[in-house]
């Protein structure tokens, strides 16, 4: 079979050169214009093709549907805590007794690891709503059930590394850096909230 001679020897640079044009100045700008327009349309096309692939990884409709939940608070008695699942995480809802509310409000802010007044952490003082994940390394603190260890501040106690939270869910002792997170929530009525 005949070996194909190097075609560049024949068609070399006569056929075309990339980019830089020779010839009349009008030709240059026309060629440049075409290159720029092709590049621009190509870039828009590439973005249009890429977008569905990127967006498909965003939360889908069924995940978004679970991104807010409504909770009925009527069955919860004073001094009682419940845990609900929200976005795959536990949320502690506690109906605080007047003693607990008092203790939380009286704390001197300078004693706190992460200073925050109790009033900034609740909409109605009776109802404390927190994301039940320790801000240290993510374990779920104990304190929701009667008989659970509550730690020295009568709130929650994380068994993993000993972080202790008070009756406002604020970190008092132990390695956790921040208070338990307060999620975004709205009171739809006196006895129902929507979280998220």
């Amino acid at each position: 079979m005949a070996m194909t001679p190097d075609p560049k020897a024949a068609y070399g640079t006569a056929g075309h050169t990339s980019g830089h044009s020779a010839g009349a100045p009008g030709d240059e700008s026309r060629r440049d214009f075409i290159y720029i327009m092709t590049g621009a349309v190509g870039a828009i096309g590439a973005a249009a093709v890429a977008w569905p692939f990127i967006d498909t990884m965003n939360p889908s409709a069924d995940v978004l549907a679970l991104s807010t939940i409504e909770v009925n608070l009527a069955p919860v008695q004073p001094g009682q805590s419940i845990t609900v699942m929200w976005r795959g995480k536990p949320v502690f809802i506690r109906r605080r007794t007047p003693t607990e509310i008092d203790a939380a409000a009286k704390v001197n802010l300078s004693e706190l690891v992460d200073p925050q007044p109790d009033s900034a952490r609740v909409q109605k003082p009776e109802w404390l709503i927190l994301v039940g994940i320790c801000t240290h390394l993510g374990c779920i603190p104990s304190g929701q059930k009667t008989g659970d260890m509550r730690g020295d501040y009568n709130g929650w106690f994380c068994p993993c590394h000993g972080s202790q939270y008070d009756t406002s869910g604020r970190i008092r002792k132990g390695p956790a850096p921040k208070n338990l997170e307060v999620p975004a929530y709205t009171f739809l009525s006196d006895t129902t909230i929507r979280i998220g």
Binding site: A10, Y11, G15
Partner: peptide, 22 residues
């Protein structure tokens, strides 16, 4: 082997070829 072509003949001279781009 290089591409075949509609005439099916072996191509010999460089003038028979063009660069793939453009």
């Amino acid at each position: 082997t290089k591409s075949n072509n509609p005439l099916g003949i072996d191509l010999k001279s460089p003038q028979d070829f063009v660069p793939f781009h453009p």
